[in-house]
């Protein structure tokens, strides 16, 4: 049994205009214990919405369907109260922009100790002492626990956010673009830290990012999201060398200097609007290998190799074509 099992997850946002925005459309994920799992995709494809849903943290304007199991326990069925029991003790999170994850008026130590106290993991005293140890674990002197967030640099705050996430020894760590606001040197340090902690503490990590080189370097497997759906999921090597979805292939091609070093070719066009229904394949308008069928049939995620799934008609023998990315060009395709 996988540590994290997501089945047919849907999220709709009620917009002020009265319309609905279908941000996550039937996402399924299996993340194994101890795995470093990447979740990749362009801005607005639903990555943050997906991980917030995993903790039941979406705003009240969102409606959620589907099931999320962490270590076998259903997270979403018990409402806010049910979800709260799993927060931080089972699933912890480092937020997108966690530069502001700390309240400006409390000390860093107080904020790291807080979840241990409220979940009864440790007494106030023990929690404070543990906060210092956690800071040392992420490379910050324990004495800094008495300091306030504004006295920390961005990189230190990010480390402290990771320390805070580890405070209740969670099984699953969700990291939503943990390095976006940092400079390149600090980014590398933070990622190294995440990787080391995952290994040493046997943590399962879901790393959300649109930074492909990063995923390729540190993750074991990854899922590529497009327009609220999973387009492809596989081990990162397979994603790069044998991608079975044009979007994945074009995404890697658009990334400079990755592994080999290619020209920058960004993907023309923009992601689909999610507040109106989409017929056929969501990627078709930007796809370089679309066939007639793509305009009408919605491609389902299907296994294309062992541990490798993709949602593209080109993989269907009935379509009569198979995209071979290593050839650099799509192999045929009638349109």
């Amino acid at each position: 049994m996988a540590l994290l099992e997501v089945r047919d997850l849907h999220v709709w946002f009620a917009l002020p205009s009265g319309r609905e925005l279908h941000a996550v459309k039937g996402v399924g994920l299996d993340v194994e214990r101890g795995e470093l799992f990447g979740l990749i995709g362009e801005s607005g494809c639903g990555k943050t919405t997906t991980v917030l849903a995993l903790m039941g943290l979406l705003p009240s304007s969102a409606s959620v369907a589907g099931s999320v199991r962490v270590d076998g326990a259903d997270v979403l069925s018990g409402g806010e109260k049910g979800a709260r029991a799993h927060r931080w003790t089972e699933t912890a999170m480092v937020f997108q922009g966690s530069m502001n994850a700390f309240s400006p008026v409390k000390t860093i130590g107080w904020q790291i100790a807080e979840p241990m106290e409220i979940h009864g993991v440790a007494s106030r005293r023990a929690a404070r002492a543990r906060a210092g140890e956690l800071l040392e674990l992420v490379g910050i002197p324990a004495a800094a626990a008495r300091r306030y967030p504004h006295q920390f640099s961005g990189g230190m705050r990010q480390r402290a956010a990771i320390a805070m996430a580890l405070s209740c020894e969670p099984k699953l760590l969700l990291a939503d673009e943990p390095t976006t606001a940092l400079d390149v040197m600090v980014q590398a340090q933070i990622l190294e830290l995440l990787q080391r902690l995952a290994r040493e503490l046997h943590l399962t990590v879901v790393l959300v990012t649109h930074d492909l080189p990063l995923v390729a370097h540190i993750c074991d497997r990854a899922a590529v999201m497009y327009g609220g759906e999973i387009a492809e999921v596989a081990a990162v090597d397979a994603l790069y060398h044998e991608s079975r979805h044009p979007y994945t292939r074009m995404l890697f091609a658009a990334t400079p200097e990755l592994l080999g070093g290619k020209d920058v070719t960004s993907i023309p066009g923009s992601p689909p609007r999610l507040d109106q229904p989409i017929v056929g394949c969501a990627f078709r308008p930007r796809c370089d290998s679309a066939v007639v069928r793509c305009a009408t049939d919605h491609p389902a995620l299907a296994e294309v190799a062992r541990g490798h799934e993709a949602a593209c008609h080109l993989n269907d023998p009935a379509t009569g074509v198979l995209s071979v990315p290593d050839a650099g060009q799509p192999a045929g395709g009638a349109g």
Binding site: R87, M99, A101, S103, P115
Partner: peptide
Amino acid sequence: DYVLTARAKGVRTRRLLTRHVLR
């Protein structure tokens, strides 16, 4: 962001409103 973080940490509504929001 820190209010969302506090919710993620499992802080209950009452404590959330007094210690984090109102403070």
